[in-house]
Design a protein around this nucleic acid. Structure first.
Lengths: 205, 205
DNA sequence: GTAGATCGAGACAAGTTGTCTCACATCGTC
DNA sequence: GACGATGTGAGACAACTTGTCTCGATCTAC
């Protein structure tokens, strides 16, 4: 999980309680800063002050600012990944998936993480890989519902994973990022209904 | 257009040619930097070096880093705003609108500007207003086509401007920002067809 | 041609970054 | 509970950045 080798928990031993405490304090403070001021505020100095931790300590654990950023982003996402159970109709399952996603985007630090990754992905290769890993994960839930629906003959078999995500997650993300406004339940339902109507199986175009 | 009062072109007189040259050099260099390294590279120092201009000159024209950023963003968008003529079917007009948008997002600095605005909008009020102004402008083209279609009875009158934009621009933006991949012509057509199929008038839901 | 403005270069203080060292507190183990 | 080992905070330090100023040289508009 950690992106920095230096203070690696020694192979066979338990992590020192002091190390754990410092890391936790720094990462939590980092997430707060990320949400309040954006990724550019994640300097060793700011984070150390915010976490009430020595500046040298932050440098010890994360000699490289980029890996500090990456670890903060990962920490911000920890616990935000939920698994949605699919039991109802295609519509209900899709609404459930997208509602969970919308809630994460509305309230937690998830949106700030995504935006940071988009902004830095074009500049840094390592962040780009992280970015792709995250969004692939986000697509998975939607795709499993859509694939089932395709298998059952409810949806156009031409649909691929990216297209399905683009037309469901895309509109929700647009609302949060470009309007910008919180995503409401009605927005999710509108998106799902339009998506399902737009991709019914026996297309008579 | 300029966001900085200090070196304002004197009310009744022409702008000094030296001033115009400096501003042009700095803003062009700024756009290059923005595309290559992101908004955080837009410091007075970096921009001055890049533009081959004295550091004091940059401070003279833009005492505040934020207004330097805003002017660079505006300069990056100058000339990117095109007006699309609507003459064909709803589908053709929508495809034309979204193709123009996709091209801007694919190639120019437009995408970097948008991403910068999204990232900073949550932090700075002035950039947030700029952001909203820009995206409202981007919605206009799509909405004029959709509104006409609604008036002609082709599309669901329940559609509003934000929903229409979310379900057309949203998926395209998703592809560029979250996949991330260039937007192809086929992507635009898929989005338009799904959108039109998903919002036909006499809905029998 | 000239008065007035902009320019680049550089000085300067204040702050930041990255690296060290050292005294001290805390840890896991015996 | 005492021990050696290790992480911690404070601070010193050089190199760099930021923001402000002043200066002489150059260019512009009239």
């Amino acid at each position: 999980m950690s992106a920095t080798p230096p203070p690696q928990p020694p192979p066979g031993r338990v992590e020192d309680a002091r190390v754990a405490r410092s890391r936790r304090a720094v990462l939590s403070a980092g997430v707060d800063l990320l949400v309040r001021e954006g990724w550019s505020a994640l300097t060793h100095q700011r984070v150390a002050r915010e976490a009430d931790v020595g500046r040298a300590t932050v440098y010890r654990h994360w000699p490289d600012p980029k890996h500090l950023l990456i670890d903060v982003l990962e920490h911000a996402l920890a616990g935000e990944v939920r698994t949605i159970s699919h039991v109802g109709s295609t519509r209900d399952d899709l609404v459930a998936e997208l509602t969970a996603l919308a809630e994460a985007i509305n309230d937690g630090p998830t949106f700030d993480v995504i935006v940071t990754l988009i902004e830095r992905a074009d500049v840094d290769l390592e962040l780009r890989r992280f970015h792709e890993r995250m969004t692939r994960l986000a697509r998975r839930g939607v795709w499993s519902v859509v694939r089932s629906a395709i298998d059952r003959g409810e949806l156009d078999p031409e649909l691929d994973e990216v297209a399905a995500a683009a037309q469901t997650i895309g509109p929700l993300f647009y609302r949060r990022a470009l309007v910008p406004r919180r995503i409401r339940r009605a927005d999710v339902e509108t998106v799902v209904d339009a998506f399902l109507d737009g991709h019914r199986t026996p297309r008579e175009r």
